[in-house]
Design a binder for these strands. Structure first.
Lengths: 223, 223
DNA sequence: GGTCGAACTTGCAGTCGCTGCAAACTTTTA
DNA sequence: TAAAAGTTTGCAGCGACTGCAAGTTCGACC
C-alpha cells in the first residue's frame, strides 16, 4: 500500500531529519542545535520539520513502540488463560526485537539522552501516552471498569520496568529482552529485597551489572 | 530562620502566582493563558514570574513532594529490619498528609491537569526527578551498586503507584494514603490478576471505584 | 499524454515561552 | 545612615512552534 515514489520520499525525508537531529545534537548538545540547523542538514525548510515532528524533541526520542505497533492487539488476542504480565511480555516481544535490529540508532539515542537529560523527560512523557493505551487494553482484557486502579498501576509499573531496561541497555551489553525480563522479575516478586535476605526469591537472581569498561565477560556483541 | 519581612513577601508572591495560574487556567484552559496574564493577575512583572518558576507549567503542577522534603532521609533512617517498600510508605506518610491538608488546592490542580493533558506530562516529568533521588536512596539503603537495576525498577514502580493514587484521589473520595496503600498492594502481589482467579491474594481486596456522582456511600468528606 | 485533484513543501508573519543583563528598588546588616 | 545583599523590573533578543496561503510534485484517471 505504500509503494509510491511519494511515500518513499517521505520516508527518506523523515529518516534524514532523524539522523541529522541525532548527529547534530550528539556533536553539539541539545541547546546548541536549532530546528533550523536540523532542517538545513536534512535539506528541507524549517517549516517542513514541523510537518514531520510536533517538537524538536520528538525527532530525537523516536517513536519507540509508542504508537500502535500492534502490541495492544496482541495483548488482547492472547489466550485467555495467560496471565496479564506474561501476555504483555509476549505482546511486546516483536517490538523489542525490532529495537534490537535498530540497535545502533537506539544506542546513539540513549547516549544523546544521557547527555541531555531534558530529553529523558521528553521520552518519559511520550511513553506515558503509550501507557494510557495500555491502561485501556489491560482493563479490557481483565474486564475491569475503566476507573479500576489495577490497570493504571500495572501500566505505570510495566512502563517503568521497560524504560529502566532501555536505559541500562547500552551499558549492560545484554539483549534488551533479557533486561526487560529481569526488570519484570523484580515486579513479579512484589519488589522484594533483591539480596534475598527476607523476600521470597521466585525470579532468577540478578547478575551484577558489569563495569562499562570491564574487559572480561565476553558475552558482549552477541547483542 | 525565615522570619524576615522579605521572606514573607516572597512567600506571598509565590502563593499569589500559583493561585492566579490555577484559577486562570481553570477558567480559560492552558493555551489561553499567557505568563503575562498570570503575572498581571498576581500584580508582578512577567519577568518576576520566571524568578519563581522555571516554566509556566511548574507554577501549576506544584512542588508535590518532588523536592527534598525529608522523604529520602526518613527512608534511610528507618530501622534496618524494615523492608524497603514498607520503609518507603512510612517515609512518604508525612508528605501525603501534608497533601491531605492542602486538599482543596490539590483537587483544583488535578482538575486542571485532567483538562489539560500536557500538564500531566509535565507532572510526570517532574516527578521523575524525584524518582532519580529515590533510586539513589534505595540503592544506598540496600547497599547495591548504582548500576543495579532493582532501585530503578523500584523507583519507577513506586512513582507510578503514587501517581496513580493521586490521579484517582479527587474522584475516589477516600484518603490519599488509602489509595496509595491500595496501589502498592497490587505491586506487593507481583501484579497478580486482581480478580483473584489465579494470583495469590495477599493484599486487601480492592473496593470498586464509585461513580463520581454516586449519592450513596457516606464516607466522603472525612478526607 | 494531458489534466485534475490530492498531498507535500515552503515562506511569511506572528505569538509566546524563556533568558541574560543591567538598572532601580527594598530590606537587612553594621 | 551607609553599605551590602537580595529582589523586581524593563529591555532586547533567541528560538520553538503555528496558521495561512501560495507554490510545487505526484498519482490517478480519462
Amino acid at each position: 500500500m505504500k509503494t509510491g515514489r511519494r511515500d518513499r520520499k517521505k520516508q527518506q525525508t523523515r529518516q534524514a531529519l532523524i539522523e541529522a537531529a541525532l548527529r547534530l545534537v550528539d556533536e553539539r548538545g541539545l541547546d546548541h542545535v536549532t530546528v533550523e540547523d536540523i532542517a538545513d542538514a536534512a535539506d528541507v525548510s524549517p517549516r517542513t520539520f514541523f510537518n514531520y515532528f510536533a517538537s524538536k524533541d520528538e525527532a530525537i526520542t523516536g517513536d519507540l513502540f509508542v504508537e500502535d505497533d500492534g502490541t495492544g492487539e496482541r495483548l488482547l488476542s492472547a489466550a485467555p488463560g495467560v496471565p496479564v504480565v506474561e501476555a504483555f511480555l509476549n505482546a511486546m516481544a516483536p517490538g523489542l526485537t525490532a529495537m534490537q535490529d535498530d540497535r545502533d540508532v537506539w544506542f546513539l539515542r540513549m547516549r544523546v539522552m544521557e547527555a541531555n537529560p531534558s530529553l529523558i523527560l521528553s521520552l518519559i512523557a511520550r511513553s506515558s501516552a503509550a501507557e494510557n493505551q495500555l491502561v485501556r487494553v489491560v482493563a479490557k482484557r481483565l474486564g475491569l471498569p475503566q476507573a479500576h486502579p489495577y490497570p493504571a498501576v500495572f501500566a505505570a509499573a510495566a512502563g517503568g520496568a521497560v524504560r529502566t531496561a532501555m536505559m541500562r541497555w547500552p551499558s549492560a551489553r545484554r539483549p534488551l529482552t533479557d533486561l526487560v525480563d529481569e526488570a519484570f522479575s523484580y515486579l513479579a516478586t512484589g519488589l522484594a529485597d533483591p539480596r534475598g535476605e527476607q523476600g521470597s526469591p521466585g525470579g532468577q537472581s540478578p547478575r551484577d551489572e558489569q563495569d562499562p569498561a570491564d574487559p572480561i565477560n565476553e558475552r558482549r556483541n552477541e547483542l
